[in-house]
Simulated assay, not measured.
Amino acid sequence: MFAAVMAATASASHAQAPSPAAAPKPAPIDRNGVLILVRSTLLALDQANKTGNYTVLRDIGAPGFQSNTAARLGEIFAKLRSDNLDLSGVAVIDPQLNLLPQIEANGLMRMAGFFPSAPTQVNFDLSFAPVNGQWRLFGISVGVGSSAPAAPEPSSSPIAQRPPPPNHAKQAASAKPAPAIRLTPPANKPTDNQQPK
């Protein structure tokens, strides 16, 4: 099950026009910044699903994302809400990234990955636009299961909703997933000469 929202690139004044020659480049963001953005976004979605009030999720977005009404966001995430998907586990579990934060040709920062168990695997693909020196939500795709959600694509309408692909389980089994990149720092293991502190 997937739900995706992407703000229209035409209405996002802070995103630049795509340039076919420009390749994505690593985003200037540290581990803590990534954790804050991913967790706060998914927890806002979780609270919106639990309360049926999508105003805060809408309001934390970039201007292009805010062109969506709270009611429209409720329609898009109705399936996740009706399935009582609990995303609260993302508050304590570290995500694993399949796509490290990168600046796309259109100026958006994009990252994708999953939470291995929250209580089921939660896949996400997020885009953020720079607004007044802060990264604000521009696009969100969330799903559960063993494969990452399809990335939302810009569209001419304020929202693009991507349904699950047909025969999803078969495609997920045959797809070769991208390697996951853990955000957790390596454990400090003492050497023979060092004493643990």
Score class of each variant (00 low, 15 high):
65 F>Y: 13
41 T>Q: 03
44 A>H: 07
22 A>N: 14
46 D>L: 04
68 N>Y: 01
74 G>Y: 05
22 A>W: 12
66 Q>Y: 07
56 V>H: 11
77 F>N: 01
79 K>I: 07
63 P>F: 01
42 L>F: 06
82 S>G: 12
58 R>E: 04
29 I>K: 04
75 E>G: 14
64 G>W: 04
25 K>N: 07
22 A>Y: 13
41 T>M: 05
79 K>Y: 12
74 G>F: 06
57 L>C: 06
48 A>D: 02
41 T>P: 02
47 Q>I: 12
55 T>K: 14
51 T>P: 03
36 I>Y: 14
71 A>Y: 09
53 N>Y: 11
55 T>L: 14
55 T>Q: 11
47 Q>K: 14
71 A>Q: 14
42 L>A: 04
29 I>E: 01
82 S>V: 10
25 K>C: 09
62 A>T: 04
81 R>S: 12
42 L>M: 11
34 V>R: 01
73 L>E: 00
63 P>Q: 06
63 P>A: 03
38 V>T: 09
37 L>W: 00
72 R>L: 09
32 N>G: 13
25 K>T: 13
23 A>W: 15
70 A>K: 10
34 V>K: 05
41 T>Y: 02
30 D>A: 09
50 K>A: 06
40 S>F: 01
34 V>W: 00
56 V>K: 12
66 Q>P: 03
80 L>T: 11
54 Y>D: 01
54 Y>E: 01
76 I>R: 15
66 Q>M: 08
43 L>N: 06
56 V>G: 05
24 P>I: 06
81 R>F: 00
23 A>K: 15
32 N>P: 04
48 A>W: 04
63 P>G: 03
38 V>A: 07
47 Q>F: 10
39 R>K: 15
47 Q>R: 14
28 P>H: 13
38 V>W: 02
28 P>S: 15
46 D>K: 09
74 G>T: 01
76 I>P: 04
25 K>A: 13
81 R>C: 07
30 D>T: 00
52 G>E: 06
81 R>M: 08
32 N>T: 14
39 R>W: 11
57 L>P: 01
79 K>H: 12
67 S>A: 13
44 A>N: 07
61 G>C: 02
63 P>K: 10
42 L>E: 00
36 I>V: 14
69 T>W: 05
34 V>L: 09
67 S>E: 11
29 I>S: 03
64 G>D: 00
82 S>E: 11
66 Q>G: 06
28 P>Y: 08
80 L>Q: 13
33 G>Q: 06
54 Y>A: 00
62 A>C: 08
69 T>H: 03
31 R>G: 02
69 T>L: 01
58 R>A: 05
74 G>R: 02
30 D>K: 12
51 T>C: 08
62 A>L: 08
39 R>Y: 08
40 S>H: 13
24 P>V: 08
38 V>K: 04
26 P>H: 07
43 L>P: 07
69 T>A: 02
40 S>I: 04
71 A>H: 11
62 A>Y: 05
32 N>V: 12
50 K>D: 00
68 N>E: 06
76 I>L: 13
45 L>R: 06
36 I>L: 13
73 L>A: 02
73 L>R: 10
34 V>Q: 08
38 V>I: 15
65 F>C: 00
69 T>M: 03
40 S>G: 08
80 L>W: 02
60 I>E: 08
40 S>R: 15
78 A>H: 13
47 Q>W: 08
78 A>V: 12
60 I>N: 08
60 I>H: 07
61 G>H: 01
79 K>A: 10
